[in-house]
């Protein structure tokens, strides 16, 4: 295995493009090292992006949007004085991943690019409408977050491409987000179901919403029907029931060691209701 520490994303992209065999990028390493140790994936080329300038920065831009470096850890997000005021659901989702120790290393980018349908930070990233910068041999382009995952363990990134920054939109007035997941324990588990909700209110009425589910399909999925079920409502019981039904209807899960099809489908509705209530309360302030 070759270990590289490039100084720029362009260099990183070039190393990756020229590499033979399996290439992995190393940010927090909380998936890459597990796969290495478990003999699941032994990369021929490992590209550590943490020596690239700015990868640890959390920046609030003039328009109120946020740019997060690819090596920003969950702990750095949680400790940031302002990010959590704007996007508490996103910060909480990231904070749910693994232990305190994992929080010291794990990153949003890694969580996204690992391609797990159960990744905790991804449903709420979908819901916020986040985008990522993708740097490759032909330069850098901006891509919607929901266009990155392709299936379990797979992304739509081409050879030589890597995520070089994450962009979260401005929070704006009357907005609220939330993420809830179901795990059998209180910590340390992979989500059996996850639900991210982002919405905006005008007075008591929901004017916009984006809702995404995790661990109920081959990738995290946006569920427009679930969003439609609550837009224009005051999140009354009928809206919540419609939301739950839409969330459950969007599920295409599998039976596995973590849960059954029936369980995931049912609990997706339960979590959607609970997460929507939190986001709604946050939006109303």
């Amino acid at each position: 295995m070759q270990y590289h520490t490039p100084a720029t994303f362009e260099d990183a992209a070039k190393i990756a493009f020229d590499a033979q065999g399996i290439t992995r990028f190393l940010a927090g390493g909380t998936d890459v090292l597990v796969q290495l140790r478990s003999d699941l994936v032994e990369p021929d080329t490992l590209i550590d992006v943490k020596k690239i300038e700015g990868t640890n920065n959390i920046t609030k831009n003039a328009d109120g949007s946020w740019t997060l470096g690819v090596a920003v850890s969950g702990a750095e997000m949680s400790e940031h004085p302002e990010l959590g005021n704007d996007w508490p659901g996103l910060v909480e989702a990231m904070d749910l991943i693994g232990s305190t120790q994992v929080q010291g290393r794990a990153t949003l980018t890694g969580n996204l690019c690992n391609g797990s349908p159960a990744a905790d930070s991804v449903p709420v990233m979908f819901a916020t409408g986040a985008t990522v910068s993708v740097t490759g041999p032909d330069g850098t382009r901006e891509v919607a977050v929901e266009d990155i995952p392709a299936g379990p363990g797979k992304t739509n990134l081409a050879k030589g491409e890597l995520v070089s920054a994450i962009h979260i939109p401005p929070r704006g007035q009357g907005g609220g987000d939330a993420y809830l997941r179901f795990i059998p324990r209180t910590e340390m588990d992979i989500a059996v179901v996850g639900c991210g909700v982002n919405l905006r209110v005008d007075g008591d009425t929901i004017t916009e919403a984006r809702i995404a589910l995790g661990a109920v399909a081959p990738t995290v999925v946006l569920v427009p029907d679930a969003a439609a079920a609550i837009v224009g409502t005051k999140l009354d019981d009928a809206a919540l029931d419609a939301l739950a039904a839409a969330a459950s209807a969007a599920c295409n899960p599998i039976d596995d060691k973590r849960g059954t099809v029936e369980f995931r489908t049912h609990v997706a509705g339960v979590l959607a209701k609970r997460a929507a209530k939190i986001a709604y309360d946050r939006a109303k302030g």
Binding site: R185, T186, E187, M188, D189, I190, D256, K257, R258
Partner: peptide, 24 residues
């Protein structure tokens, strides 16, 4: 212990063999 149809152990690690953690 969770075995698959193939008779292989599906949860040979502390991630999915879920012993109680302090917060449980």
């Amino acid at each position: 212990y969770i075995y698959g149809e193939d008779g292989r152990l599906q949860n040979a690690g502390f991630l999915d063999y879920r012993i109680p953690v302090a917060s449980d």
